[in-house]
Design a protein around this nucleic acid. Structure first.
Length: 281
DNA sequence: CACTTGACCTGTCCGC
DNA sequence: TGCGGACAGGTCAAGT
């Protein structure tokens, strides 16, 4: 699901809840969802919760890290006194935990629980060595919300893909990390750029607009993610998971909020892509 | 190397 | 109601 803003929201939520808690037990319901020896994480305290691109990390006392990737359908549900839910919203979220898509269950020493739910089983959890095994993260492109992510960096990174559609290029995690299918459409809309325009045909002002569009859509996502994508809810659940704030994503046939044109859906790089043909050129 | 396509899974929705 | 196909917020490997 989850793109940068959703994983960031999960990180912030979990930070306040599980740092300093000790993992008592890990129960793996689907073997392929967890790689590593669960026993090495048991009895360990969570020291830090962090995010890199769409990857979430929990640093443990013994210099091991639990890494999470939620892929298309992953969720993390923390059940303490209340429920904290982050990830791709599904109807299952209203269910009691665990539910039929629960793949791994963490129990902490205070008996609170963290459920890893993943309908499509694409997601994973890995237990890795902080020094030796995390080097693969360096293959990821820059974090778009870092100060160091300037227009020049964006241009330098994506310009080697001159024949690639802009929207496809900004989703390439080795060029820029964290932008997925929703925010790629939203960023192009914000920048008034046709998502299928080739990178090589972008003007200087368009590079600047794209840079701002990426940052703005991700920041908006984090702002809304806190209130609409991830929820603190009562155990009985609460509606509102599907609250939709996007300008173009999943809005085929709707009228453009900016110019009144009609939002169109096309395929780009095999992914559904939404834009307003009237004001994105 | 640049770029595309299919595979990985499960579930839901939509048209016949 | 049942069935088939398309589709879903991500990434790999294998292909051209």
């Amino acid at each position: 699901m989850p793109e940068l803003p959703e994983v960031e929201t999960i990180k912030r939520g979990l930070q306040n809840k599980i740092v300093n808690l000790k993992i008592k037990d890990i129960k793996v319901l689907n073997p392929n969802s967890f790689q590593g020896d669960t026993q090495k994480a048991e009895k360990q305290k969570v020291n830090k919760v962090w995010r890199r691109a769409k990857v979430l990390g929990l640093d443990l006392d013994n210099n091991l890290t639990l890494l999470f990737h939620l892929k298309m359908s992953g969720q993390l549900v923390y059940q303490g006194k209340r429920l904290f839910v982050g990830g791709h919203p599904t109807q299952d979220m209203k269910d009691q935990m665990p539910n039929r898509s629960t793949r791994v269950i963490f129990t902490f020493s205070d008996n609170s629980k963290l459920y890893f739910n993943d309908q499509r089983k694409f997601g994973w959890i890995k237990l890795l060595d902080q020094i030796k095994d995390l080097t693969f993260l360096k293959d990821l492109g820059p974090e778009p919300l870092d100060k160091s992510f300037t227009v020049e960096v964006l241009k330098e990174k994506i310009s080697k893909r001159k024949n690639m559609a802009v929207k496809v290029a900004i989703m390439d995690q080795t060029l820029i990390s964290g932008v997925g299918n929703i925010y790629a459409s939203e960023a192009c809309f914000d920048a008034k750029i046709d998502p299928k325009k080739k990178v090589g045909n972008l003007s200087e002002p368009e590079f600047r607009a794209l840079h701002q569009g990426i940052i703005k859509s991700l920041e908006d996502g984090i702002t809304h993610g806190g209130s609409s994508r991830a929820h603190f809810v009562n155990a009985g659940g609460e509606k509102g998971y599907f609250l939709d704030y996007a300008n173009v994503y999943n809005r085929e046939g709707d009228l453009c909020k900016r110019c009144g044109g009609m939002i169109k859906k096309i395929q780009l790089g095999g992914r559904g892509t939404y834009f307003c043909p009237n004001c994105q050129s």
